[in-house]
Design a protein around this nucleic acid. Structure first.
Lengths: 104, 104
DNA sequence: GCAATAGATAAGTGTATGCTTATCTGAAAT
DNA sequence: ATTTCAGATAAGCATACACTTATCTATTGC
C-alpha cells in the first residue's frame, strides 16, 4: 500500500524471486515454491507480505489459489522514483526502447 | 551495491527522508538531521546504510562531511524495474514528460 | 464419511534492525 | 595546547524478520 511496505517487501531476495515468477503469468503457491529450498509455510508467509504490500492479488479457485501480479502494486515505487528522474540511467536509450515497444 | 541493499536501505522512512533531502543538493550530517527527532548517532548510522547501498557518496571538507546523491546509486532499482515495464503507469504521459524535459 | 491435498495460521528461535547513551577521532578556533 | 565542534563507533536493548515444525481449515475425490 505505502512506499515502506513495497520497499520492504521487495528487499528480500526470496520474495523478489516469488514475485518475478509471477511475471510469466499467475501461479498457485505450490508452483511458486518450486525450486526454492524453503518450507511451505515460509512461501505462504512471503505471499502474505507481498499481498500486504499490494504487490500481488489472489483468486481462490477450488482448493487452489491463483496469485498474480497486481498491476498497480508497483505504483508507489514508480511515484517515488519519478522524483529522481534526474538520476535515471540511459535516458535516451530507455526512451528508444519505450518507443520501439509502443510501436508494436 | 545490489538490489537487496538498495531496497532495504529505502524501506526505512527516516532513511528516505534523509535521501530525499539530498535532492536539493549536498548537505552535511547536521543539516540532514534537521527536523528529524532522532539522535546524532542514529543519523550517522542511517548515512552509513545509504552509503553501503551505494546511494550516497561523501566528501570530507575540513571537519564537515558533505553528502550527496550518488547518480548511479538507483541503477539497481531501475534495472530491476525495467523488467516490469509492462506495469509502468501512465506510459504515454510519462513519455511526454520525458520528451518535454529533454527538449529543455 | 474419510483420506488426501492446498494453503494458512500458531508458536518458537536465531539474527537483523533501529534506536539510545556513552565514548572516541579528528579538525578548527582561540 | 586546549576547548569545541562534526561525525563515527561501541555497547546495549526492544522489536521486527525469516525461518522452522506442528497444526488447523477448507476443498476434492473416493
Amino acid at each position: 500500500m505505502n512506499e515502506s511496505d513495497v520497499f520492504r517487501a521487495l528487499s528480500d531476495p526470496t520474495r523478489r524471486a516469488v514475485f518475478d515468477r509471477l511475471l510469466s503469468g499467475g501461479k498457485n503457491a505450490t508452483e511458486l515454491r518450486e525450486g526454492l529450498e524453503i518450507s511451505q509455510p515460509a512461501v505462504s508467509q512471503h505471499i502474505a507480505v507481498l499481498r500486504g504490500a499490494g504487490l500481488i492479488s489472489e483468486e481462490r479457485a477450488g482448493r487452489h489459489t491463483n496469485y498474480s501480479v497486481n498491476p498497480d502494486g508497483l505504483k508507489p515505487l514508480f511515484d517515488w522514483l519519478a522524483r529522481y528522474r534526474a538520476f535515471w540511467p540511459d535516458r535516451v536509450e530507455r526512451l528508444k526502447t519505450l518507443l520501439k515497444e509502443m510501436d508494436q
